[in-house]
Design a protein around this nucleic acid. Structure first.
Lengths: 237, 237
DNA sequence: ATCGTTTTTTGAATCTGGTTCAAAATATGC
DNA sequence: GCATATTTTGAACCAGATTCAAAAAACGAT
């Protein structure tokens, strides 16, 4: 009936309010300072109401992640639609990702934290499933690009599964972000903090997959130009 | 004077006792269950005494990490001494690392947790420095192998710094471990949980660096044999 | 060995902040 | 308008990290 529909909608709106406000508070003082009571107060609700939406603080953080993933996905969907050689598209994923993370630094830190056992285990099972579900379309897009490359003859999988190749690029991205965001690490090891470092290593990996056309890394300006071109075409930065 | 030397030594011994016991408790019930009071009690000391060694719980966890790093380092030092082609040695680092992580699953989870802002920020500055220092020799060894490869003519850096190439392998390892240890992730994306996936991607990266001799990934048994050989020579597993 | 002083240890009290739940408020259906 | 069901409230509860005043031990001079 109409009444319960409205209630459902209001509930959904309230949930978004909680998430919006949490995001804002986090942006202001970092996710470490986020307190459930403070958040509820900021939304003019009692603490208990907050717990009707999120089973725990960790659950809330994961919900936040899940929502951010939607933005992430939107970016990837643009690339999915983009007509370009497969190698350019797979690399565009990295560029987009890198860029997304640069602008949403808090988000990377949060995702790093959320993927930790301490947090993961404290969220509701439903939430964990939700977050894994969020990854699915992203996964599908990346696999799709790999598949396209194989179909187009740009990439010979040499017996590897589509997923395995997609996983390689994912792991490299993931690892680079983790290292980049570990306080003082780059500085301690005298590694310049530039996205180009990651871009070059990603292209080494893609070259190693024999993903055509190979990128010539001895000509640094070539890669710079490619990145610029991708950023312009995708309207990033 | 002699007296203060003894005291210093006793203090050091007590610190090790705390760390040993913490390790044991963690092995028994996971690092999430570790409680400062419980730990102190288990060592027959008061809670306050524990705090004379570690400024916070996070500080203790990081100290644990730092100590584990020493084991890690010992493994890497064996590889440093090992006479073998550079490509075999850099790959051996990955194999050793993978193996180390398989056997010390708690340790990977801990390191993932510790590198999180929430933990990092709550440890003492001294501890953070200590942990970064621990990475230095490891970094030196890996860079050394890259450098050897360049010197031997196995690897043309094409303008890249030694560190950048080392960083690439590190990021791939790191990212693979993170993904592997995120609950349910591999399962959700139907990726088989096998170290070979990572090994193959690592060799793709190394191939992409043009690190000689290239590994032929279309012959899966070749890689399997290589891994076996490395494990035997290094006496792992 | 004894006593005043300094250092170390102790663990109960404190504090923080997440979570709960009985009571109050509100909505629903008759 | 009333009885019942649902939702909201926020003070109480609780876990567990951290502190700190008091007690104990170590020290060193006599």
């Amino acid at each position: 009936m109409g009444t319960s529909e409205r209630k459902q909608r209001e509930r959904e709106e309230r949930e978004q309010l909680f998430l919006d406000t949490a995001e804002q508070l986090i942006a202001e003082e970092g996710f470490l300072q986020l307190q459930m009571a403070k958040l509820a107060k900021a939304c003019d609700y009692a603490t208990g109401t907050l717990y009707q939406h999120f089973s725990s603080k960790e659950d809330l953080l994961m919900a936040l992640m899940a929502r951010q993933s939607a933005l992430h996905l939107a970016l990837f969907e643009r690339i999915e639609q983009w007509q370009a050689p497969s190698r350019m598209r797979i690399f565009a994923i990295c560029v987009a990702e890198q860029d997304f993370n640069r602008r949403q630094a808090n988000y990377v830190k949060l995702s790093q934290y959320v993927m930790t056992e301490a947090v993961w285990e404290n969220a509701s099972e439903a939430r964990r499933q939700q977050l894994l579900q969020c990854g699915q379309p992203i996964c599908r897009i990346v696999s799709g690009i790999v598949q396209q490359a194989i179909d187009d003859g740009d990439l010979d999988p040499q017996g590897a599964s589509t997923m395995e190749l997609a996983y390689g690029t994912w792991a490299l991205c993931q690892g680079s972000h983790t290292l980049e965001h570990t306080q003082g690490l780059l500085e301690a090891f005298l590694i310049p903090r530039s996205p180009m470092t990651m871009y070059r290593n990603m292209n080494r990996l893609l070259n190693g997959m024999q993903w055509q056309p190979l990128q010539d890394l001895s000509q640094p300006e070539q890669l710079t130009r490619l990145v610029l071109q991708i950023e312009q075409q995708l309207d990033i930065a």
